[in-house]
Design a protein around this nucleic acid. Structure first.
Lengths: 331, 331
DNA sequence: CTGAAAGCGCTTACAG
DNA sequence: CTGAAAGCGCTTACAG
């Protein structure tokens, strides 16, 4: 690979001049510039980003830490992050934690040591100390989807409204026995959805019916088992609200196995719609959050911070997006 | 952040000694070592990987280029890659191309310039030249899933056997009019599956019935439209083979809309099973490739190359994995 | 067994 | 408008 030095030699100038010309970082005589560009082109010069990173103390890499990608909203969110990052010349490096806080800790350590410029994370909520330590060294950290920590910026959706609106919607459809697959209550999205559900159920004078099980929360099995428990305990149940789409798939499957007609006998919906809901034998009603925009927004937050004047670094910011109900066949 | 220099000062030795002690790269007196470890610990020293990368000319990052992650086998494959990479101290940076060769070209350029040590790619097949150029600079390149180029190592599945076995299986189930959703014939997995299908159909004396449409190939819509075309043109059709799961979802949906009972009236299966097949209202039969292992194997190939003695760099290697039929409810 | 020096490829004050 | 020099934080021959 050709280096700055090679270009400098060919163009008959100093490396510093080449650097200035190529980066447009200060005035260079047009003729000199011309020569430099020609030389760079001839040699197929590509700047060594590692050397640049070392010198500038900036790697132009954003670390992204997510629980999982497959069959979750996170793969759509990630697209938003990458899109925004690429636009501004940043690369992205993604770590998947499976919601295991030890894995998460390990990945965060690696990211820190690998010199990422910023971190976007949908956290387990068990590594707040590390996140704050990282933040304290000047590396911006943005919480995504889950606002688990105080003092760190965040981009989330309005989960409480999701839960609330879903109940109201199902009530209007005629449902009077509405079950919620509750999820992990130490994670704010699940907690928020439950709070909204609870509020609506109370307002409507309905019974609170929630179910959960011991399996990994963001999974088909969790939805399947929880739906079965709900249906066992509440034979009169006429609606199930799942927190996320894969849980909804599990609930649909459970209903199918029991021969419960959807939506006539049992209505099912998810509070975190993503693409899969539209692709089913019976398409699934869901609350859809603007996943792509949320990802882009998180990346924007990081980049704003990084590109800001060191004297005026933006402070903590918390953004909440609204979800919208998309009606399909399961209700 | 503490640097080597800080540690050296505290331990009263030269930075070079600290480096040797911390990296175990040559004998250091036990007592000195002790002092150095203590100093490093006290300062919370973390090596600056960017500086190390610049000095060693190795970044310990593997670039991964994939068409997409959502609802494809690639998310499982990626887990295999990351698992293997992490084990050997490599990070991974993932780019998604949407099978757009311009995007792919751009991402490859970025990866090259960002100094990745190796590249794993499921390519569009339109940037062979660039891939070979990258390979020529000593950066190992492994083709994954799609073996589009000669002269570059690859990890694939036996697509032809998949197509062949699927037809034989359906024939044994009593099917005599078996349609194939063909997919993009310039991509080797689709081509291979078609060849296997063709061979089996010929052996069995059946009619060759294939369908395709103009949409993005790895999508629900492609499966949905193709299935509808197949069913319009061949009312007697009693089986549909989809290349990938999302196409299968599309076919299931199309059948459901037409009121065709699955599997009694129409059998449907996919040749690239991943997790979603088990999560459906009617679970889907599929050929399952060992996705995780394939990813791990690709990463292994890259790492073997990188860790090998410069004088004995391993040469091109092509690995093919077998798929296994998993029978579910759609057949 | 350890130190001093060179250098990876850049950028950026500092002169002039 | 451009050059010379320093330095980012490491590693690694080279001496001794």
């Amino acid at each position: 690979m050709a280096t700055l030095k090679d270009v400098a030699r060919l163009a008959n100038v100093d490396v510093s001049t080449v650097s200035r010309a190529l980066n447009n970082t200060s005035y260079v005589h047009p003729e000199t510039k011309e020569r430099i560009y020609a030389a760079a082109k001839e040699l197929g010069y590509r700047p060594n980003v590692i050397a640049r990173a070392l010198r500038q103390g900036r790697s132009h890499v954003i670390g992204v830490v997510l629980p999982r990608l497959h069959l979750t909203i996170f793969s759509e969110i990630l697209q938003g992050i990458e899109d925004e990052a690429q636009k501004h010349g940043y690369m992205t490096t993604v770590c998947v934690t499976e919601d295991d806080h030890k894995l998460e800790r390990d990945r965060l350590a690696r990211l820190r040591d690998s010199g990422v410029d910023g971190i976007i994370i949908a956290a387990t909520g068990r590594n707040g100390r590390i996140l704050r330590d990282i933040r304290a060294t000047g590396v911006p950290v943005v919480q995504l989807v889950r606002r688990q920590e105080q003092g760190l910026s965040s981009v989330i959706a309005d989960y409480e409204a999701c839960g609330y609106d879903a109940v109201k919607y199902l009530y209007e459809k005629g449902c009077r026995s509405i079950g919620l697959i509750a999820g992990a209550q130490h994670l704010m999205p699940y907690r928020g959805r439950y709070e909204g559900y609870k509020k609506a159920v109370a307002e409507l004078g309905l019974e609170e019916i929630t179910g959960s099980c011991e399996r990994e929360v963001n999974s088909f099995g969790y939805g399947y088992d929880s739906a079965n428990l709900l249906l066992d305990d509440n034979p009169e149940l006429d609606a199930i609200i799942a927190a996320v789409d894969v849980q909804g798939l599990g609930a649909i499957r459970a209903a199918a196995e029991r021969g419960l007609a959807i939506p006539e006998r049992l209505r099912i919906m998810s509070l975190t719609g993503h693409r899969v809901g539209r692709m089913l034998e019976t398409t699934m009603t869901s609350m859809e959050m603007p996943a792509f925009d949320m990802g882009a927004s998180a990346a924007q937050l990081i980049i704003d911070f990084l590109e800001a004047d060191p004297k005026f670094k933006p402070s903590e910011r918390n953004t909440s997006f609204s979800s919208t109900l998309v009606e399909r066949e399961t209700t």
